[in-house]
Design a protein around this nucleic acid. Structure first.
Lengths: 196, 196
DNA sequence: TTTTGTTGATTGATCCGTCAATAAAAAATA
DNA sequence: TATTTTTTATTGACGGATCAATCAACAAAA
């Protein structure tokens, strides 16, 4: 019984279903039928709206990225000092919305898939660059440029590393501990400089 | 034309072929025929020696892990002080043998697969624990126990994070830079404590 | 003649993507 | 207003491709 204006609702439902399916299976090896089933529609409809599976996956990654970007913008707006900006960027990556098992699993899976898909790789590179420049925007106010660059690189690596370890359910158990770890690193790096 | 004693040679060749195939494709989505072809045999032979595909993949991960463990032992043997032991553990992870594109891709792919395969997950957890205790064996000589634990956790996260970023071919470009980044972190962490 | 090495051919399952068909809403036309 | 037509929503069924795993068969060494 077709009601008009279904398209945006179905697209959203299918993308949500994709994330939860990936999260449960822990990889992109989910079938279109599985995803469609979770969204309460047939696989034919998923193809109708997204064309190929690749595009559904791409749209899903775009959605995750867009949410992260929005959260990041919000967090940066409410940070007044350079130091606060750095902490805000870190905190967003471990917020309740971002640091969920499904989202983490999706990130990891997409990282792997990016090695095959050029489109996905481009998306992830854009995110990486944005993360770096966001971190830098805070750090350059405190450290000399080339050292700020290093610290930004290390912080980004720490974030990714803590995501991976969380996916393995080994090592750092929760977001608070993860944040504390990175903040500890930043504190030693920044307080040291400011003390000299 | 069968010659005796082929089994160990074929096993080795198949495992090597698996690593190079995974490295090239960037994921575990490689067919048995592809792997067998690279090893110069038929896919039927691969099944003959390894049974199922899962077991070939598992054997491959075991092989990578065994090599890393051997390298680690060697490096630790030639380190005399606690501080040197820490650096040795870090260095091994970025040695020419370990920090190759194929090996990195394989690691990443296996991390993802571990979410599906319990056997693989067990393997990776063993590795994670060993890495942690190796780092700790050096750090406990310098830092109080609970802080040593934290630093070990952060170092492990940095290693994983730098692997991921290398896989994306973005960020840190080479092993030397990666090592410098981690050593810089360790130096600030350790020199600070020893100065107090 | 038994063991070891090896493969081509085949089977069975999975899964993506397409298509024809159906149904209801909306728009156009009479 | 009544009708036809078009657009939007939706699915079951199916074709075709891929691939893991098996098996029968063959060859050479022991």
């Amino acid at each position: 019984m077709p009601k008009i204006g279904m398209e945006p609702l179905r697209r959203k439902a299918l993308i949500d279903a994709t994330i939860s399916a990936i999260g449960e299976r822990g990889s992109l090896d989910v079938t279109m039928s599985e995803i469609a089933g979770r969204a309460g529609v047939s696989s034919a409809l998923a193809h109708h709206y997204f064309g190929a599976k690749d595009e559904l996956l791409l749209a899903t990654m775009r959605h995750i990225l867009a949410e992260l970007t929005a959260d990041m913008r919000r967090a940066l707006r409410s940070a007044s000092t350079a130091r606060e900006r750095v902490s805000a960027v870190v905190a967003v990556n471990f917020s309740d919305v971002q640091f969920r098992p499904e989202t983490i699993a999706a990130w990891l899976a997409f990282y792997v898939e990016a090695q095959k898909s050029a489109a996905l790789r481009r998306l992830l590179k854009v995110y990486a660059r944005r993360l770096h420049s966001n971190l830098l925007s805070g750090l350059t106010g405190i450290l000399p440029r080339n050292e700020a660059d290093r610290v930004a690189e290390a912080t980004a690596a720490l974030i990714d590393g803590l995501y991976i370890r969380r996916a393995l359910k080994d090592g750092v158990p929760n977001a608070a501990t993860a944040i504390a770890l990175i903040e500890d690193y930043l504190e030693t790096k920044l307080s040291r400089r400011s003390a000299q």
